[in-house]
Each structure stands twice: as structure tokens, then as C-alpha cells.
């Protein structure tokens, strides 16, 4: 799973996915028959089928991650920023970031606890009150290193934690985990034409998937995700959404899509028959590229399979390589059967 490390450490905030695209392209160039980058930056690769069917299957994984954008440089050289995508203000304080093409290091400062009024310790600091310190003392100096409009990512190295679940930590598993799975799936050839769409701008509104689906016009689709895993100890009646190590999570319904029942049943049946562990993602939470894909043109039957990933949308996330491999297995076995699925009603 070396590619997960490379993917995780690549910088690709929504709208600026070029570096991630390059990593993926290098990995898949020899595995696919055609590829192109579209107007928004989606990487769309075609793995031709064995010719038995005209069916087109789209599998999407998004390349972008949540991050920051530099909005303004203050006179004394500190940088004001705005989140790109959904980030909880509370995870921002005292983090290290890398800014722009040259990966200029900076830190999001925090007032020392000693200087805080007791009340202030309980208050959430809003991102508008924070700034990034890159070590300069004037606007002019700052402008030599960074510019307004630069993107910034959290600086988090990929580390293997090991253990029975073969846990790893890194940034942006949402959705580099999905990208890693999709890259693996491109090793095989299937009876149908497989369109792998590595999409952009999922985190700002499923925008890449929307145009990719329109141009591919698939007969059915899967979205691969690194999804919410909220399995910290808490009151027993609260769902963990998904649980680490319990296998790929299948979506029934989230905020963006009601998964196609026939595809869901095929996934479940395939998992059961092959002894692959699986779980259901808690319904009604989150949204994925499938939300845009299933509404493309005249509609596309769609499903979502995800790798449970703890602490997504924060600097560091954590997943089990077992789950990642089981997701590859589940998808590989399901794709082998998807051609026989009757989609008429």
C-alpha cells in the first residue's frame, strides 16, 4: 500500500488537485487504455472491457482534500486564511501547514494558555481570528514567499502504526483511500468498459463528479470514499457511523443519495459469498460524489463503498489497511458480477 502514502502526502486542496493527479497518472498510465484531463481537472481513465457488453461502469474517487486558502497578508507579514471545504475551527489551532507550490512552512499560532483569561479558555477561536506565521516580519518579506490565493495543506507525514488492524495515519484519507482502491482496481480487466474518474472539488459541492458523469454517461456507477468513522467510546445508543476494522462500509442512504437497491444487494451478496467483512454506514449522514453522479442526465443507478477513516476533515486521519484491502476485494468481486445485473424495471 505504498501508493496510499504517496497519495496521502500529495497536496491537493479543492481546485488545486494537480499534484495528486500526477501521482495517480504515474501509477495508472500503464494500466489503462486511454486517459484525459477535463475542463475542471478530473482525470478520466478508460479501461476497455473484453468487448462482451456495451455497458459502461463509472467508478469515482475524489482527489481533493479540505485545506486552507491565503486571503490576505497583514502589514507585519502574518497570513489570514479561509478554510476550503468543511473544517471545524477547533482543529486548526497550533497546527503546521505547507503553503503554495513551494510548500513554504508555516504555523497557525495560538495565544499561550498563560495569557488567557479563564473564560477565554472555554471559547472556540474562529478561523477569522487566527493567522499563519511563516517567520517573516513584514508584508514585503511575506510576498517574496507566498501570495494571496495560495492554497495551504496540513503538514502530516504518513506513518504505519501497525497492530492487528494494520492501522496507518496520515492526512486526507478522505478520499485518497478511495483513490488508492480505484488505482488497485485498474489492474484487472472487466467484461464492461470501466471509466475510472479521479474527481476534483468534491469537498466544495461534488462539482468534478457532476461534469465527469455527464461526459461519461455511464449505465451504473460506484463512488469510493474514505468515510466517517466515529467509534470513540461514548454512550451506547450513539451510532459510530462506521467502525474501524469491520470492513468496507456500504451506504444505504446519505444526504446526497439513496443508493440503488439492486447494487446494494449485489454488494451484500458478494460480501457474504466471499466471506468479506462489511458494514452499513449509518444512514442520513454525509454526502459523496454519488450524489451528483446518480442525477446525471437521465439518472444513473449508483452505490457507495467506503473505507472507514477516523478523524476525517481534521489534520490527521487514521484507517486500517485490512479495511482498505477488503474494500478492494469487495469491489473486485462485485465488478466481476455486475455485468449480469438486470437493470430494467
Amino acid at each position: 500500500m505504498l501508493l496510499l502514502k504517496e497519495l496521502s502526502e500529495a497536496c491537493g486542496v479543492s481546485g488545486n488537485e494537480g499534484a495528486v493527479r500526477q501521482v495517480i497518472l504515474d501509477a495508472i498510465r500503464d494500466r489503462v487504455d486511454e486517459y484525459r484531463t477535463d475542463a475542471l481537472g478530473n482525470l478520466i481513465a478508460l479501461k476497455k472491457g473484453t468487448g462482451k457488453t456495451a455497458r459502461k461502469v463509472m467508478i469515482a474517487a475524489h482527489m481533493d482534500e479540505v485545506g486552507l486558502m491565503i486571503m490576505h497578508i497583514e502589514k507585519e507579514g502574518s497570513l489570514r486564511f479561509h478554510p476550503v471545504g468543511g473544517i471545524d475551527d477547533r482543529v486548526l489551532l497550533a497546527k503546521k501547514v505547507l503553503i503554495g507550490e513551494n510548500k513554504v512552512p508555516g504555523v497557525i499560532g495560538a495565544k499561550p494558555v498563560h495569557l488567557l483569561e479563564p473564560k477565554a479558555r472555554e471559547q472556540v477561536v474562529k478561523f477569522k481570528e487566527m493567522s499563519i506565521d511563516i517567520g517573516v516580519s513584514s508584508k514585503e518579506e511575506a510576498e517574496r514567499l507566498v501570495k494571496v490565493g495560495d492554497y495551504a495543506v496540513f503538514d502530516v507525514p504518513f506513518v504505519e502504526l501497525g497492530g492487528a488492524l494494520r492501522t496507518v495515519k496520515g492526512k486526507a484519507f478522505d478520499d485518497r483511500a478511495g483513490c488508492a482502491v480505484l488505482v488497485e482496481l485498474l489492474r484487472d480487466r472487466y467484461p464492461f468498459d470501466l471509466y475510472a474518474a479521479f474527481t476534483v472539488q468534491e469537498e466544495v459541492g461534488l462539482r468534478g463528479a457532476r461534469v465527469a458523469a455527464y461526459s461519461i454517461a455511464p449505465h451504473l456507477a460506484f463512488a469510493l470514499e474514505g468515510t466517517i468513522c466515529d467509534d470513540l467510546p461514548k454512550k451506547g445508543d450513539t451510532s459510530p457511523t462506521t467502525v474501524l476494522g469491520k470492513g468496507p462500509a456500504i451506504t444505504i442512504m446519505d444526504r446526497s443519495v439513496i443508493a440503488d437497491r439492486r447494487l446494494v444487494e449485489l454488494l451484500i451478496d458478494t460480501a457474504e459469498k466471499n466471506g468479506i467483512p462489511y458494514q452499513f454506514k449509518q444512514p442520513a449522514l454525509g454526502g459523496t460524489d454519488a450524489g451528483a453522479i446518480h442525477l446525471s442526465r437521465e439518472g444513473v443507478p449508483s452505490a457507495v463503498v467506503a473505507v472507514p477513516s477516523r478523524y476525517i476533515h481534521s489534520p490527521t486521519s487514521l484507517l486500517s489497511l485490512n479495511d482498505l484491502e477488503n474494500t478492494v476485494q469487495l469491489m473486485r468481486q462485485t465488478l466481476a458480477r455486475v455485468n449480469d445485473l438486470d437493470l430494467t424495471r
Binding site: G236, D237, S239, M253, Q282, P283, A284
Partner: peptide
Amino acid sequence: VIVSQIDEKGFLRFAPV
């Protein structure tokens, strides 16, 4: 409504549709 979780005693937690 959609069943979101099933507890040990067989009560069904749910979310709105």
C-alpha cells in the same frame, strides 16, 4: 423514517427521510 441502528434489546433507532 430509516433505521440507523439496532440496539441490544431490538429497539430501532432511526433518521428522517
